[in-house]
């Protein structure tokens, strides 16, 4: 499923050595998992379906029911029936709230294609409505943090300090992993903090609120909703939208590493060709 995204392609190219020897095993594993999932889904259905349906109908809203249907199709394998979690496969989703669902599903990280160091961002499987429905289901199942409705950025015309405040908070709380330029960064053993150039305000808010993967949680006590919107304002206005001055290209924002590469690939190369021409026999 990831194969069409650039990230997926890159992943395959650079992880060939790691994944190639276990291809057969992986296939077998996938088949076993598939069978297990089918058995589980079937079993769950026969065991719970009649009663559960009658019970849930009373509690769940229409959107949540739609969400439940989607959940039972795509998520139940790892997160288990009633989202209780499956040992060694996926955590319980009770209490994670719709914020977590909207972040994980909205960015395509869930459903995962396989167990790996960290869920990769890819093209979302579900559209926006379906994501909302899934979120609604999880929310009604066990409560938890929710992404507030309405605008999640601040109008810097009315509140000009928001950008500077957001910048300060960003450098203190976010930059250590995502980088000052928002280009992302490596964590231990194959994990990483993703680039901040793509996510929407909702997704950033959801990530801060729920702490997906290895990201620490920034609840409303650590960063007030206002501070969160200031950070989002900084990310969207300064990092995503602003054409930074000082050149046509910013070399990816990776700092001195790419600058050093550029001085050899561009500077030294141009000048070596120039000297070849100067000293060449005419």
């Amino acid at each position: 499923m990831t194969s069409d995204t650039p990230a997926g392609r890159r992943f395959r190219v650079f992880n060939r050595r790691r994944s190639a020897p276990s291809r057969a095993r992986r296939r077998v594993g996938a088949a076993v998992r598939m069978l297990a999932a089918l058995a589980l889904a079937g079993g769950v259905y026969t065991a719970f379906a009649p009663g559960a349906f009658a019970q849930d109908d009373k509690q769940l809203s229409t959107a949540a029911q739609e969400g439940q249907a989607l959940f039972n199709n795509s998520c139940i394998t790892c997160h288990g029936p009633q989202a209780q979690g499956v040992e060694g496969r996926g955590p319980s989703l009770v209490g994670v709230g719709s914020a977590a669902v909207e972040f994980q599903v909205g960015t395509g990280r869930m459903p995962m294609t396989r167990q790996e160091a960290q869920a990769e961002q890819k093209r979302p499987v579900f559209d926006e409505t379906q994501t909302k429905q899934l979120g609604q289901y999880i929310q009604e199942l066990g409560g938890g943090p929710q992404i507030p409705a309405g605008s999640l950025t601040q109008d810097i015309k009315q509140n000009p300090e928001a950008l500077a405040n957001g910048g300060e908070l960003f450098r203190l709380n976010c930059a250590q992993c995502h980088g000052n330029v928002g280009a992302g960064g490596a964590l231990s053993s194959g994990k990483f903090a993703p680039s901040l150039h793509d996510p929407s305000p909702q997704q950033i808010y959801g990530a801060m609120l729920t702490g997906p993967q290895n990201m620490p949680v920034f609840g409303d006590n650590e960063l007030t909703p206002e501070q969160k919107t200031e950070i989002i304002t900084y990310i969207t206005q300064q990092i995503q939208d602003d054409k930074d001055p000082g050149g046509l290209f910013n070399l990816g924002g990776y700092g001195p590493a790419t600058e050093g590469l550029a001085i050899f690939v561009v500077g030294i190369t141009i000048l070596v060709f120039a000297s070849l021409w100067i000293a060449g026999k005419s």
């Binding site: 702490g211 949680v217 609840g219 006590n221």
Partner: peptide, 10 residues
Amino acid sequence: EDVSVGGQIT
């Protein structure tokens, strides 16, 4: 209570 579970502040 200012620090959530799984959270950190400087």
